[in-house]
Computed example of a mutant assay.
Amino acid sequence: MRPILFRDEIKVKKVLLYHLYIALLALLPFFTAMLAGFIGKCLNCNINEAGTDQCVRAGIAFGNVLNPLAVTGWLLVITLPIGVIATVILIIIAVHDTIYHTRR
């Protein structure tokens, strides 16, 4: 059996980096929602999913920007399962290729 994804042993050792990249992409909506909540708390703004609050500070309306950022947290419902599936597939491929390289 030939290696599926990692053609040499050096690439197999980079699997952890690939897992971190998948985790970052899967959790990115969570980080944006937390950032919106943090900025909203710092500016003392009311951020909720029902609608936007004007939240005018220093002549700038932050409500129209913070509300969509907070709602992107729902995207986690899609990205988290995709990230878990991608991680499981990558683990299976890495184990297969590691077994291939150790037998060679």
Score class of each variant (00 low, 15 high):
V71N: 12
A23L: 12
Y18E: 09
V71T: 09
V71Q: 10
W74G: 14
R57M: 13
D53T: 08
T32I: 15
Y21P: 14
C42N: 15
W74Y: 15
A23R: 01
K41Q: 15
I47P: 01
N46L: 13
D53P: 06
I60V: 11
D8G: 04
D97W: 06
Q54L: 15
V88L: 15
K41G: 15
A94N: 09
L17T: 12
G63S: 03
H96Y: 00
V88T: 11
D8H: 06
N44T: 11
K11N: 15
I92V: 13
L76S: 13
L90S: 04
A70F: 12
I92K: 03
K41C: 14
A36Q: 06
L5P: 07
A94S: 13
M1D: 01
I22E: 07
T72R: 02
L28K: 06
A86D: 14
T72P: 10
W74T: 13
N64Y: 12
R7G: 01
M1R: 00
I89F: 11
I78E: 11
I4M: 04
I10E: 12
M34D: 14
L20W: 08
V71M: 14
A86N: 09
I92T: 05
A70V: 08
I99C: 10
T102W: 09
G63C: 03
E9F: 01
M34R: 07
I99D: 11
C55M: 01
T98K: 00
E9W: 05
H101N: 06
Y18R: 01
P29C: 04
R103M: 10
G59S: 02
I82V: 14
I93C: 01
I10C: 05
L75I: 11
V12E: 06
K13D: 15
I60F: 10
L66C: 03
K13Y: 11
L69M: 13
L75G: 14
I93E: 02
L66R: 03
F38T: 14
H101C: 00
G59A: 02
